[in-house]
């Protein structure tokens, strides 16, 4: 599959959305709503539950499975209140040192006028910085589309997993093509240039783990996610707060490829 075919696959009818992953991975679910500030946002489904007995906070972006649910969730584009709900639950998780698991699937944060009025930029900025300082382990799983800042707001974590066919990008290939060539229909070329696949993310160090997809047997796929989460969280829970935060800092500090006084720098080694 080309990168663009993968992107199209993530948007295809019938592909499991956030809610399917929650149901498949998290037990003892209690859904929790609202940002306690302005509203409830159906684009983000969140709550508490367990992973084989380990209490966790779960947060998922939900794209919807049919027109009615997609209208309700704005096709998986969270509003500021959605990000603020997610942050509220993350801070709550921190209080109990309960790990946070995020399932990410969005073409981007909702770009409507009301989202701008209510500070979409501020909401994302706040999520990123607070996640980076959160004194409890965090793992994000990109299950479909990891769209730009709207995805990073739930991906500033200790570990990132990519589903085999998921993509993660700074800009939608359509948006990139229309800026670059004034032609959104060249999204396929843009997708190639941007390097958006799970393998690319692993190469860049943006993701640690690629989860194989088996949609004939979705339960088996969920079992793999569950095992990875349980193992990684068990290990992360053993770190004290200072170590956890220092390691998370180092995880993000390394990103960057540049030249300094003639010498190529950046610990991320990646060549095309």
């Amino acid at each position: 599959m080309t990168p663009y075919e993968k992107l199209k696959l993530t948007r295809q009818n019938g592909r499991p959305t956030g809610i399917a992953f929650i149901n498949g991975v998290i037990d003892d679910r209690v859904e929790l709503h609202g940002d306690r500030r302005f509203a409830e946002d159906a684009a983000i489904i969140s709550g508490i539950g367990s992973l084989d007995g380990m209490p966790v906070t779960y947060i998922a972006i939900e794209k919807g499975v049919d027109l009615a649910t997609r209208m309700k969730t704005n096709f998986g584009c969270p509003k500021p209140e959605g990000y603020r709900k997610a942050l509220r639950l993350m801070k709550q998780a921190e209080k109990f040192r309960r790990p946070v698991v995020c399932f990410v699937d969005t073409s981007g944060a909702y770009p409507g006028a009301e989202a701008e009025e209510r500070g979409q930029g501020e909401a994302i900025a706040e999520n990123i910085i607070e996640m980076l300082g959160l004194k409890t382990p965090t793992i994000s799983v990109v299950i479909g589309e990891g769209g730009s800042g709207g995805a990073l707001a739930l991906c500033s974590s200790d570990r990132v997993y990519m589903m085999e066919n998921a993509v993660y990008s700074v800009i939608s290939p359509e948006g990139c093509a229309s800026i670059l060539w004034k032609d959104a229909s060249r999204a396929e070329d843009a997708a190639q240039c941007l390097r958006i696949t799970a393998d690319d993310m692993k190469n860049f160090g943006v993701a640690e783990t690629i989860i194989p997809e088996n949609y004939e047997d979705f339960a088996a796929t969920c079992a793999i996610i569950k095992k990875n989460l349980k193992d990684d969280l068990t290990m992360l829970l053993q770190k004290d707060d200072d170590t956890l935060l220092a390691d998370r800092y180092a995880r993000f500090r390394k990103f960057g490829i540049y030249e300094e006084n003639g010498e190529t720098k950046g610990t991320v080694s990646y060549t095309c």
Binding site: A125, I128, I129, L132, S148, G149, L152, S156, Y168, S169, V170, I171, C176, I179, C193, L194, R195, I196, D200, M201, F204, V206, R248, Y249, F252, R253, F255, G256, I257, V268
Partner: peptide, 18 residues
């Protein structure tokens, strides 16, 4: 973000925020 640097440009948001 500078799209010409792909996902690495997105990661700068988190790096700076940290």
């Amino acid at each position: 973000a500078r799209m010409q640097e792909g996902i690495i440009s997105l990661m700068q948001m988190a790096k700076c925020s940290a």
